[in-house]
Every structure is written in C-alpha cells, then in structure tokens.
Computed example of a mutant assay.
Amino acid sequence: MNPSQTNPSRPDQTPRTALVTGASTGIGEATVRALAGQGWQVFAVARREDRLAALAAQTGAVALAGDVTDDAAVARILDAVSSAGGVDTLINVAGGARGADQLGQAKTEDWEWMFQANVIGSMKLIRAFLPMLRAGRRGTVLNLTSTAALVAYEGGAGYNAAKAAQRAMTQALRLEEVGNNLRVIEVLPGMVQTEEFALNRLGDRERAAQVYRGVAEPLTAEDVADVVRYAVSLPHHVNLDEIVLRPVAQAAAHKVVRDS
C-alpha cells in the first residue's frame, strides 16, 4: 500500500510526470527544480532555448522550446510529450503583466499581450492535453493566477482582467471535467519578487525595484514553487481547489508594510 493512502497529508510517492510552462525563469523555473528534486519527470516549456537547455542540464528535465500561444508550437509540444510517454499533470505558469497604466491611458498592445500570455496560452495547452489527462483518469491541471484576480487596483486593470479571466476559466474547467476525475488547482500568489516580473511589466530596473522597496520578505519564486509542488503531489483524491499565498507583510492587496 502506498503510505500516502493512509496519511493524506503526505505527498504521493508514485512516480509522476508533469509539463511546466514558463520554465525559463521565475516561478516556472523554480517549479521545474522543485518537482525534479522530488523525482518527477518534468517537461520544461518556454520560448528561450538557451535558458531551457541550462535548466535541463541541471535538473534532468526535458526541454521543449515553444510559444504556448502559437498553435503549431503547441502541436509540436504535444507530439513530443506523447512520444515520450505522456504526462499526468499540466502546470500553467507562463504569463505576466505589461504596463501599469490607468484605464484611460490603456495601451491596446499591452492588454492583448496579457490576454494572450495568461488566458489564451493556458487555454491552448489545456485543450491540447485534455485527452491525455482524461485517458489516465488521474490527471491534474494547475493554473497559476494571482491575487490580482481577486481584487482590482489602480494601474492594474489589464492584469486584473486577464488574471480574473484565467481564474474563471479554471473554475469552469473544474466543473466540466470532474466527471473525468480531473483535479483542477488554482494557486494565487500575492507579492513575489522574481528576476523578471516587475522588470517586464515596467520596463525599467529602478521602477521595478521600487515595487519591493522596504518590504522585508516578499515571497520568492521558490516559495510559490514549493506550494505548487505540494499541491500536485498530494494523493489524487485531495484537491486544494484554491490556494492564496502572500508574504506576511502584505495583509491585503492595498495593505503592505514597508520599512521607513
């Protein structure tokens, strides 16, 4: 008997396989490392081949370069994973924010990029891999959204809208696929300090650094990855539907304690 069957608080030790998107940096990269360190076979997906190759060399993950918003790339990824034996877990981390304009100054290209990266990319991966996940009858989909999906804030309308849409998609998927025993998990981080998130959003290193100014301990990519690893490693009948995590210094989206 698997020990985890008698103690649901213990992670399942059965060999598992996962595909992780956004794997070239930040939470995606940390998630690949966390799962590989626990013995998972991991397929790491991102656009930057050089970073994926380095990650694969360090972790044993299989590097699959491609843009998850591109249909041809998604088809190639699916073919490669199928040929290698498939996966039982899909973890959508790819996404991000662009800009911090208020709605009256919104840039259409920023909004289009956020919906493509956060919503359309996740949809395309889920749609492609659902037959595989259904067939095993013990599949898992985990979508990384954000507390921005829960509470709107000034200058965040585009990211709020994209993450709220991704959250709604996740909730609908859970309802639609429960008959196929598909486990659907949503992880909603608050303030996470990573190498690129704020820089990509604001386009300036000094402005990006100000996001975390005076916050003693923002979450790290590794903090979030450890939560993701735990959630997908539990016995399959245990579903952590929604996991909100923030640093202690961030009591709410609008309440962050900063050192003077």
Rank of each mutant, 00 (worst) to 15 (best):
137 R>Y: 03
241 D>M: 08
53 A>T: 09
216 A>R: 15
17 T>F: 08
215 V>D: 01
217 E>C: 06
128 A>T: 14
168 A>E: 08
140 T>L: 02
106 A>D: 06
204 D>W: 10
128 A>Y: 12
168 A>C: 12
85 G>Q: 13
197 F>L: 06
240 L>N: 06
155 G>M: 11
107 K>M: 09
141 V>N: 01
27 I>K: 14
95 G>V: 10
1 M>D: 13
100 A>H: 08
215 V>A: 01
256 V>M: 02
163 K>N: 05
57 A>E: 14
164 A>E: 04
195 E>T: 05
241 D>E: 14
184 V>M: 11
248 V>I: 12
166 Q>D: 09
134 R>H: 14
142 L>Q: 12
80 A>C: 15
134 R>W: 09
141 V>K: 09
229 R>S: 14
142 L>S: 07
253 A>C: 07
139 G>H: 09
14 T>G: 00
230 Y>F: 12
108 T>L: 14
54 A>C: 04
162 A>C: 05
182 L>N: 07
193 Q>C: 05
235 P>M: 04
197 F>I: 01
217 E>L: 09
206 E>W: 00
106 A>F: 08
187 V>N: 08
99 G>Y: 10
83 S>G: 13
117 A>I: 10
169 M>V: 09
193 Q>E: 12
57 A>W: 05
120 I>P: 01
89 T>C: 13
23 A>L: 04
70 D>M: 00
138 R>E: 15
200 N>R: 13
54 A>K: 12
